[in-house]
């Protein structure tokens, strides 16, 4: 009963958040200068043409009226029609979302593995030069933003040592048997490791660029909380039982020390998804972020709205997942 109430409450707050986002984005992009109709018509179009097209997209009505019409559609699953692409918004957005999700998840996996390994190494060899080296690596990772890492990686592994592809999601010459847009997952499911490898070679650099700053943050916080945990009595007690340093770190300290890091990862992962917008652009990766930039350039109001709503939904789901994981991992919260 309690769980049901908590779930319902959570769903309610999530919908309030989404409605808030919808209102803000709808009005803000209409206040910002720029006319979508002007972008569509060739130079020399008559006043009449402009008026006709404006009426066609409903842009002649008042903003409040437009909002009511749009929200009515959204509640029925209709997010309108893209002005620049002349297709319904939702299929467009959902078609691109998997590419971005795969990129973001790949980046997250890299960040957790690299950040976790760095933190554990730093703690295992604390107060030695190894820890100093970890601190320096964290500092470097944190002080360079993801889009700069992207450029550095392009120069290193795209130009000087061309190991990875610098553009696109998959080589255009390949025949694709895919029915979903989750190429990486589907290539594994179909045991098409040739395609999988090609996807990875495309995804690696953008994912790494997104992952490096996050890995540094994870490493820094996790190392700090591990070091604090290593002084606690239960850790000392387990040493007297005959356990090795590695065992003490991994099975006594880590499960407790990783809780604050987990919360941080949840917050930072949403930032990382925000980062995909510019990174996808730099690597011409056909994801939602890249589409968002085009939508903004073309003043494609319905498409911008659709993308923002989907991003917002994604963020609220991530926050929900983090809270759920936190409750599972921290027994003290389970009865609360």
């Amino acid at each position: 009963m309690k769980l049901l109430r908590a779930t319902l409450l959570r769903l309610l707050t999530m919908s309030v958040t989404l409605i808030g986002v919808a209102v803000v984005v709808f009005f803000v992009i209409r206040v910002v200068p720029g006319n979508p109709i002007a972008m569509m018509l060739p130079p020399g179009a008559t006043e009449d043409d402009v008026a006709r097209l404006t009426a066609l997209y409903g842009l002649d009505k008042s903003i409040v009226e437009q909002f009511v019409i749009w929200l009515g559609g959204v509640l029925q699953g209709d997010f309108g029609t893209s002005i620049s692409l002349r297709q319904p918004v939702m299929p467009l957005v959902l078609g691109r979302l998997p590419a971005t999700l795969e990129l973001a998840i790949f980046a997250l996996v890299i960040a957790v593995i690299v950040g976790g390994a760095l933190a554990l190494t730093g703690v295992r060899h604390r107060e030695t030069r190894t820890e100093t080296a970890v601190d320096v690596a964290n500092g470097v990772g944190l002080s360079i933003p993801d889009f700069l890492w992207a450029l550095i990686l392009i120069v290193l592994f795209g130009v000087l040592m061309p190991i990875f592809h610098i553009s696109g999601r998959i080589s255009p010459s390949l025949d694709l048997p895919f029915v979903t847009q989750f190429y990486v997952f589907e290539s594994v499911a179909r045991l098409r490791f040739d395609l999988w490898w090609d996807l990875l070679k495309h995804m690696f650099m953008p994912a790494l660029a997104l992952a490096i700053p996050l890995a540094a943050i994870i490493s820094q916080l996790l190392k700090q909380s591990l070091k604090e945990t290593m002084h606690l009595d239960y850790v000392t007690l387990s040493r007297t039982k005959g356990y090795s340093e590695n065992h003490v770190i991994l099975s006594e300290a880590l499960p407790n020390a990783m809780l604050p890091t987990l919360t941080l990862i949840g917050v930072q992962f949403t930032f990382l998804i925000g980062g995909t917008v510019i990174i996808e652009r730099l690597f011409s990766y056909e994801g939602l972020g890249n589409m968002a930039i085009d939508a903004v350039i073309n003043r494609d109001l319905p498409l911008i709205q659709g993308i923002v709503i989907v991003f917002a939904l994604l963020f609220t789901i991530i926050n929900l997942l983090v809270d759920m994981m936190y409750a599972v991992l921290n027994p003290r919260l389970r009865h609360a």
Binding site: L232, D233, Y234, T236, L237, S238, E252, P255, N256, L329, N330, P331, R332
Partner: peptide, 12 residues
């Protein structure tokens, strides 16, 4: 140990 409140691992 001295302090039973801190000598048990809270997550196990």
């Amino acid at each position: 140990p001295q302090d039973p409140l801190t000598a048990l691992n809270p997550s196990r």
